[in-house]
């Protein structure tokens, strides 16, 4: 006997009084799937004194279930897991949707593990096919796509990679229903301590019209000078992919990507960057993307408008020479 209904429950994400952009994407996915299940899409918003946020979320055209408790004022895995667990047990949704963000992939597997549910994460697409959920995932540095099928008599937990679908538009209106679910204090073992911000004593990449980013393909720290020279010639600043800031060749403030800055310059030149999802998430919306890489199958060429298969250490000096003529 089925122990699930036909609803989709999505878990909203917010920080410092603002909804995460990925939440509006979940609304779009949930609405699309709910037409197939003939169920409703509901968004769980957890927080403390968060009515305003819940109303903002409802304006995306989704019914919001609001859970307010001082223990939910800041995200902790314990607080969110217990609250979502109670909602899942009460409402028995077909699918629990979260964004594949640092918070989403903290919560989703713990929820699935503690409730003994099926889990599929980091999907670029999810659809329902009869009794089954078919999730599309990208593997092995984006080089392989996998369609995974799951079926279960119980709710399935899934996370969707941010940026996979266009967000739902604002303007519609949904309801906000408060639910009283005080999380069990004995299960609140973790404490939120504080949020820390990176020190900003450097240029702000997100304010630059032109960014020339360096990746592992520049091979040596000394070669950064070449990238800097090129950036100067095109009126830009130097950014980097994660491996370079991890090596401390450039400060963390220069990192473009999911764990760094999201940028939308008019021109983005990726020099020796393969284009892992982590990086692409931070620059795919640039106006003009030029990618230079020695590997013709590098995923960066999928998001670039113009690609050059070349050694960046040779191409940049040659192009500089051309620009000076």
């Amino acid at each position: 006997m089925r122990t699930i209904g036909s609803d989709i429950l999505l878990v909203a994400e917010h920080l410092e009084g603002r909804l995460a952009p990925s939440t509006a994407e979940l609304v779009a996915i949930g609405r699309n799937l709910a037409t197939q299940t003939v169920g409703a899409t509901k968004a769980a918003l957890l927080g403390h004194a968060a009515r305003g946020l819940a109303e903002a979320l409802a304006r995306f055209g989704v019914d919001v279930v609001l859970v307010e408790d001082p223990a939910l004022a800041e995200y902790t895995g314990d607080g969110y897991r217990e609250a979502v667990r109670a909602l899942v047990e009460q409402t028995k949704p077909r699918l629990v949707l979260l964004a594949h963000t640092s918070q989403g992939y903290d919560l989703a597997p713990a929820l699935a593990g503690s409730l003994d549910l099926a889990l599929v994460t980091n999907c670029v697409g999810v659809r329902l096919d009869g009794d089954r959920l078919v999730a599309t995932r990208r593997l092995l540095n984006e080089k392989v796509q996998a369609d995974i099928e799951l079926s279960s008599e119980r709710p399935i937990v899934a996370t969707v990679r941010p940026g996979s679908v266009p967000p739902a538009a604002e303007g519609a209106s949904g309801s906000v229903t408060s639910v009283d679910l005080a999380p069990d204090a004995a299960k609140m073992r973790m404490k939120f301590v504080r949020l820390e911000r990176p020190e900003v004593a450097d240029i702000d990449l997100s304010g630059s019209d032109v960014i020339v980013s360096a990746g592992r393909g520049i091979q040596k720290r000394e070669n950064l000078a070449l990238v800097e020279g090129f950036a100067k010639a095109v009126g830009g600043v130097v950014g980097a992919s994660r491996p370079l800031t991890d090596l401390e060749w450039l400060p963390k403030t220069r990192q473009v990507g999911q764990s760094g800055k999201t940028v939308r310059p008019k021109l983005y030149i990726a020099c020796g960057i393969s284009g892992a999802m982590q990086h692409v998430a931070g620059m795919k919306d640039a106006g003009l993307i030029i990618a230079i890489n020695t590997d013709p199958s590098a995923p960066i060429f999928e998001v670039a408008h113009i690609g050059v298969v070349a050694d960046v250490l040779k191409l940049l000096p040659a192009t500089l020479k051309e620009l000076k003529e």
């Binding site: 796509q145 119980r154 690609g307 040659a318």
Partner: peptide
């Protein structure tokens, strides 16, 4: 397990679009 799991299939990702590639020698590319 409380679910059944299967790999329906693997495929090369559909290119979302591909860059316009600049070919030729380094000098021509530059």
């Amino acid at each position: 397990l409380p679910y059944s799991f299967g790999v329906q299939g693997l495929s090369p990702p559909a290119a979302k679009g591909h860059a316009e590639m600049i070919g030729g020698s380094i000098e021509e590319q530059a």
